[in-house]
Amino acid sequence: MDDRTKTILTAMRKVLRVAQANSKALIRETGLTPSQLIFLQMLDDGHEKTAGVIATRMGITQATTTALTHKLEALGFVTRRRGETDRRQVWLTLSDKGRAVLAIAPDGVHTRFHQRFIQLKDWEQAMLIASLERVADMLGPEDLDAETLAEGVENALELPSFRIEGN
């Protein structure tokens, strides 16, 4: 491997380690994974949303959204109801228990990243987006969701498993 490849792999390992440390702290404080926290945050505006909208915004598959919904409903963090006109549609809302856990959740790596990212100039943001999308393309097929891609990166970099979420 050449020096540039080693440098980029080292930077990727650092990102993964920071995200993994954040994941452990979040689980310790709230019992939630980063995916579950982001899912709850998507519902924190007081409006019902469909499972499909959540899946699209998080960049995950419908199957992953269904699994998250079932888990969070079982924990009492979300409520769901079937659509009145289309019974296949699932509407989700944050429960009081869900709002309470969000209130104690520590600011995670996503929040810190967002706060710093929006301070960058537009061209810097565009450059980072393009670079990371290119890295993602280099690592695997385009049809993988963010969660599946993260698992592949972790395996390639020989790090323990954790999940990376989309916006």
Rank of each mutant, 00 (worst) to 15 (best):
M12N: 02
T56F: 13
T50P: 06
E165L: 12
I118L: 04
E29W: 02
L37G: 01
D137T: 05
R87E: 15
K121F: 10
R87P: 15
Q125A: 14
S23H: 00
A126Y: 04
Q36E: 14
V15H: 11
L132G: 08
F77R: 09
T7N: 06
M1P: 03
R99K: 15
L26S: 00
A11W: 06
R57L: 11
T30I: 05
M127S: 04
N167M: 10
R57I: 09
D96P: 06
E133T: 06
H70K: 14
Q62N: 12
G98K: 01
L120W: 04
F162K: 02
S35W: 00
L102C: 13
S95P: 10
W91A: 08
I8V: 15
L157Q: 12
H110K: 09
T93A: 12
T79G: 06
I129H: 06
Q62I: 11
L9H: 09
M138V: 10
V90C: 11
G98V: 03
P106H: 07
L43T: 02
R112H: 09
F39A: 00
T7G: 05
M138W: 08
R13P: 02
E133P: 01
Q89W: 05
L37W: 03
L16Y: 07
L92K: 14
T30A: 07
F117H: 03
S161K: 11
G140I: 01
R28M: 02
S35C: 06
